[in-house]
Design a protein around this nucleic acid. Structure first.
Lengths: 121, 121
DNA sequence: CAGTATCCCGCTAGATACTG
DNA sequence: CAGTATCTAGCGGGATACTG
């Protein structure tokens, strides 16, 4: 048997998933996209992300804030007004994200075909 | 309230996750890396991927085969010999994967710092 | 060697309802 | 408006044991 292969292109990602930042989850990438053109309020995010629940949106935003991807700014007053904005770190994620989308555009159909062909047995 | 934002950079990925192909899971990207330099047998994959269980490795490989990312070739005979190899489609995933790794290399430390700073409260 | 067969656990996310 | 509080379900993944 040959020497064990070392998938060392993932050094530093060893723990649990490929990326140390969870952007492969259900909502993070979409939230990033919604914040692309400027800060948005909580309720402004809920609309395009429907049918996301407030609980899940809050959890996602907290995780992103924790990772330094977004900032949360609350103006005191009634009614409350909270704005979420991308940090430079958050914006920098559009590069790998764009690569994924490019792959999808280029090969998505091929993948769907493969899946279809596999099912046909 | 302004018009609903349209995160349309994810058009075609609408169903459930960002990518239609599950490469953000725990093992797919690593399996891809292990197959990078040529076909490998089932047991050859188990070594570098330890402590993966045979069940999970089988499931992952089946999903990748279904998506047209790898081919499975079994030579009849005893003992059985099965080889897994990348397809061109599978190889094409290294492009977006490299972008993710580049981000990680460039900003991983920054993210860790942010997380640490957030915890310090 | 290359898998299957069971059983099980944690975690993400959804449903629903409530509040400062 | 911007959340919080519960409860629950489903799924990816793991442990262990067995087989053609």
């Amino acid at each position: 048997m040959p020497d064990p292969l070392a998938p060392d292109m993932f050094a530093g990602c060893a723990d649990h998933s490929t990326l140390p930042v969870r952007v492969g989850d259900k909502w993070t990438a979409k939230i990033l996209a919604c914040l692309r053109d400027g800060p948005r309020r909580f309720s402004e995010l809920q609309v395009p992300l429907a049918p996301i629940t407030p609980k899940v949106l809050t959890e996602s935003l907290r995780a992103m804030e924790r990772d330094g991807l977004v900032t949360r700014t609350a103006q005191p007053g009634i009614p409350p007004r909270v704005e979420y904005a991308l940090t430079p770190l958050g914006s920098s994620l559009f590069a790998p994200l764009a690569a994924s989308c490019a792959w999808n555009a280029a090969h998505g159909e091929e993948l769907r075909k493969a899946r279809e062909a596999y099912a046909a047995r």
